[in-house]
Design a protein around this nucleic acid. Structure first.
Lengths: 221, 221
DNA sequence: ATAAATATTTAGAATACTCTAAAATTATTA
DNA sequence: TAATAATTTTAGAGTATTCTAAATATTTAT
């Protein structure tokens, strides 16, 4: 069994290696967990001893198979709880993360199994992120960044790249959520922002940055 | 904010003072938490500093108003989660305690509020224990121990005194649960056990000890 | 290729919680 | 009430996690 803290480190390492496609370095982990590099070094030694990571001094770390399985189990729990909070308790998508961060540490395989069934085996969480199966497999999806759509093209929101609270609240205020149809009206030269029609109704300008953070499934014409 | 461990101590003290109507002594707390008396002493000092308990050396402790409020908040969370686990996820009553023990430490007032509403503001948990309101009030009930019923009298199970797993599994095997109707057929001289009719069907012998652990609402004749 | 900048590790110490063994206090009992 | 038993506290130390500051290694820039 692993401590709460060890689990947080494994999740952070998983997140970083996803992002960088390589190994997670001390400072990156320290940044992710808002702790000091020295604390990270201490913990890396411990995690290496428990064979959750491969660790070479000064060279960064990556997860072992065992570490990866733990990471996906945590991600699975986190995202299942997010679905529960959003769908059953009616929380908004920006409210679910912090609570799920706590719930993901609850230890009970049976609980996860029953929660999954109760929620009807969801494949994606309220932010559109895929929920790994119990053996660590993710459902893939053909999605593109909203910024790749040309004027005249449309897509449905299927996920987000980053989901910090301010961004989620901003999307909420524009009535953009999972499943929302977005149609590109025009590309504006200024900061590469786009004019967008939202669900065939309201029109709004989205920055290039915002578009890059929104994944859509392209509507085939 | 209090640590997980501090919360466990407060719950233990609450439980003991409920039982003994007085103050909780070091050894009792150590027993309840399966820890050493020395550890308890350390923690009592800490809890006293945080004004959660009144503590006099060698004299035992009792909760302050602040401590009592914390204890009932924890109990509320624990029991609401038990209802969730039993009613929504289909766990048996002997399976819910350990998981709820973890879930009760999740910090979010909003979560408790929504969970309560989602469960339709339950007043009792799956063992029949009352769920305190958010301001710490308990719903009372006119219940008596099953051992007080004379032959010919009947009652409906509304709660249990102790609920360790073996006892709960024993009751399960007899098809005794909350709401079950129990009719006393006769008192047996041997160990004061009773012959009982269960839900107007099956007949079974219950020990005096078992009867004392079952609370019933007497059926008025 | 060396100096400077950056990243990482080590050393030493702090906090939270735990323990065993010994000392102190309170309760029992005869 | 004095001796004994039981309980509680203190002392000293261990594990887990964290920190700052100093030392070391690596990378970058000249």
């Amino acid at each position: 069994m692993y401590t709460h803290t060890e689990e947080d480190y494994i999740k952070a390492i998983f997140k970083i290696t996803e992002r960088t496609q390589g190994s997670a370095h001390t400072n990156a982990i320290a940044g992710e967990l808002s702790t000091s590099a020295a604390s990270v070094t201490d913990m890396l030694k411990k995690l290496a001893e428990k064979t959750l990571i491969h660790y070479e001094k000064y060279r960064g770390v990556h997860l072992t198979g065992q570490g990866k399985l733990l990471a996906t189990k945590l991600l699975r729990k986190h995202r299942l709880w997010e679905v529960f909070l959003a769908e059953k308790l009616g929380f908004e998508w920006h409210e679910v993360h912090d609570i799920a961060e706590q719930l993901e540490h609850i230890r009970s395989d049976e609980l996860v199994k029953r929660l999954d069934a109760y929620l009807d085996h969801p494949k994606f969480d309220p932010h559109g992120d895929p929920i790994p199966s119990s053996d660590g497999k993710f459902t893939l999806r053909n999605q593109v960044g909203l910024e790749t759509l040309s004027p005249g093209e449309s897509g449905f929101v299927v996920g987000l790249k980053e989901h910090d609270t301010p961004f989620l609240e901003y999307l909420n205020s524009l009535n953009i959520r999972l499943g929302t149809k977005l149609s590109v009206i025009q590309w504006l030269p200024y900061e590469k922002s786009r004019t967008m029609r939202i669900d065939n109704a309201r029109e709004s300008v989205l920055s290039f940055q915002a578009c890059k953070n929104i994944y859509v499934k392209k509507q085939q014409l």
